[in-house]
């Protein structure tokens, strides 16, 4: 499988892929500030835990009676003490105020950051169970994989507009930023600035139906030059390889075109937005929204029967004959 991967020049395939998504190994500014406040909260709650649990353990150890001990005299009856009550009320009040103040600062810093003029703007639309990705300034439509420049400068952060076509989803790339929901009839905003080139993996984090588990998300952070190349490639119309015109004809003659758009080829599929845009399918790393590597075998298996690969997904089994299947898959493989 690895060799086939190498054979296809995928954009970003040579980048390190971060599949262990530890929120304490942040690789972008929002996740970093969230980690810092998390460490502060850990420190405070850790001290509280040690203090209170220690006192509890001491109390139990010191005052427990041997089992089956004879019942003796009752211990001194103590009903309470106002001074002590005040003391252990004031201390938590102070701690709580510190935490509220720090939280307010981070919330404002992350949420109220306004996009610089030059910021890259990307619209992400959640669908049952995949992500539509639009670059309005570039006229690019793609899916499940968001390319953006890696940067250490907030000026070059990427601003996301988050929307949903059906139910609520949630955008979560643990190493880049905490989550923001994609809600129908509403546009949410967030920004991320992956510091290093790399592939960042995340999941849909709001339960959205049958295949919520297999709604994975990828951000490909690239150096500005590669990103520029990627945009140029994506802006092109689909490859029209005469050798696969038969497959193209099968694609257009079947229900494929009702859901999938391939830019620039034929009118039949123009504007179909129900499923992912396939114009540059082979430039993407995965199939089925991040579930399978985009290899010829996986592509063939997917087109043959997506219900086996991702049971319950909204693409039906098309019941293609082996001949049709080969032609369509051959055609799709030219869509670089």
């Amino acid at each position: 499988m690895f060799t086939t991967l190498l054979a296809i020049p995928l954009a970003g395939a040579d980048l390190p892929e971060h599949r262990i998504t530890n929120i304490f190994e942040p690789l972008a500014t929002p996740a970093e500030s969230e980690k810092n406040i998390a460490l502060l909260v850990f420190a405070i709650t850790g001290v509280i835990f040690v203090g209170v649990a220690g006192l509890l353990a001491y109390t139990i150890w010191r005052f427990r009676q041997p089992t089956h001990a004879e019942r003796t005299e009752e211990p001194p009856q103590v009903y309470g003490s106002n001074q002590i009550e005040v003391a252990w009320t004031v201390l938590p009040v102070l701690i709580v105020f510190v935490l509220i103040g720090v939280s307010a600062r981070v919330i404002a810093a992350v949420e109220n950051a306004s996009p610089p003029q030059a910021a890259l703007k990307v619209t992400v639309i959640g669908h049952q169970w995949w992500w539509e990705v639009l670059y309005p300034d570039y006229g690019i439509v793609t899916a499940n994989e968001i390319h953006m420049p890696a940067t250490n400068d907030h000026k070059n952060a990427t601003y996301l507009q988050l929307q949903s076509a059906d139910v609520i989803h949630s955008f979560w790339l643990p190493q880049l930023s905490g989550k923001t929901d994609l809600i129908p009839n509403r546009t949410n905003f967030m920004w991320i600035d992956p510091h290093e080139p790399g592939v960042y993996v995340g999941n849909c984090a709001e339960y959205c139906g049958t295949q919520h588990a297999n709604m994975l998300l990828r951000v490909v952070g690239e150096d500005p030059k590669s990103f520029k190349e990627w945009t140029i490639q994506q802006q092109k119309r689909a490859v029209d390889d005469p050798q696969t015109s038969e497959g193209h004809a099968v694609f257009e003659s079947l229900a494929c075109v009702n859901c999938h758009n391939i830019a620039g080829l034929g009118k039949a599929s123009a504007g179909s937005k129900f499923g992912p845009d396939l114009t540059h399918l082979m430039s993407r790393q995965t199939l089925g929204s991040g579930v399978y590597k985009n290899t010829p075998e996986n592509l063939r298996a997917w087109v043959n029967d997506p219900q086996v690969q991702k049971p319950g997904c909204l693409m039906p089994s098309m019941k293609l004959t082996p001949d049709e299947l080969s032609k369509v898959v051959d055609y799709l493989e030219t869509l670089r």
Binding site: A38, V41, L99, V106, V110, P174, S177, G178
Partner: peptide, 14 residues
């Protein structure tokens, strides 16, 4: 308390 901390909750939520 960790979940109540808004920015930490952006990570922990759901």
């Amino acid at each position: 308390i960790m979940l109540a901390t808004g920015p930490f909750d952006w990570q922990l939520h759901d």
